[in-house]
Design a binder for these strands. Structure first.
Lengths: 99, 99
DNA sequence: TTGACATGTCGGGAGTCTCCGACGTATTTT
DNA sequence: AAAATACGTCGGAGACTCCCGACATGTCAA
């Protein structure tokens, strides 16, 4: 999961798919990389269920399945208070200065 | 950043530090790994500013600096709607079934 | 000052990641 | 049926990750 997100190409793939489904070749054309490289990245994303593929004729439409990302959100949650607290205290200071 | 979180040992280090500062040796004792291994993980976390170290005598106290994690939250944000929508529609279905 | 202690860093081995060209497979077109 | 298209996967090269034992550095205690 975190490992799948550790690669910038895969993160960009996910962002692209957030705008709607795309074919494998279409996705590959968005990068400087070779088509096999993208195919392998898509395989990684498929393994952690972040994308699903729907064969359609000789093409293959990939679409996002963002739900597993919720796990990341859950992991992140206990830490949120740290930067939110910091933001709140910053706001408080601003508040104080205004009065 | 994402790369730093890609390792389970480093994620566990961060969770440990969320409860308060600890010395390097103390942290190392929480793992089956050798002390040098932990020292290197801490170096990675230091490089992305997720931890800070405060030398104190011959020990070194590490403490969490969670702010860079906000970047992860920001990256995640555009995807949140996907699973939140799904959760809402699930709730709607439950609501419907009850009536 | 000498010895013990807490820690960082180096060298190197085993495994993994990332990438590519080449090849195999299924589907559509001619 | 044959050629073209859209893919996936394989073999292998190069870089990187993770780990450890050994060593270096700095600090406190006797």
């Amino acid at each position: 999961m975190f490992l799948a997100l550790a690669n910038p190409v895969r993160r960009r793939l996910l962002r692209l798919l957030a705008d709607g489904p795309r074919t494998a070749g279409d996705l590959a054309n968005q990068f400087e990389l070779s088509r096999p490289a993208i195919a392998e990245h898509l395989q990684v994303l498929r393994r952690v269920a972040l994308v699903r593929d729907v064969p359609q004729g000789r093409q293959r439409h990939y679409h996002l399945n963002a739900e597993p990302l919720a796990q990341v959100g859950e992991w992140l949650h206990p830490f949120e208070r740290f930067w939110r607290e910091r933001l709140r205290s910053f706001a408080d200071v601003a508040e104080e200065e205004r009065s």
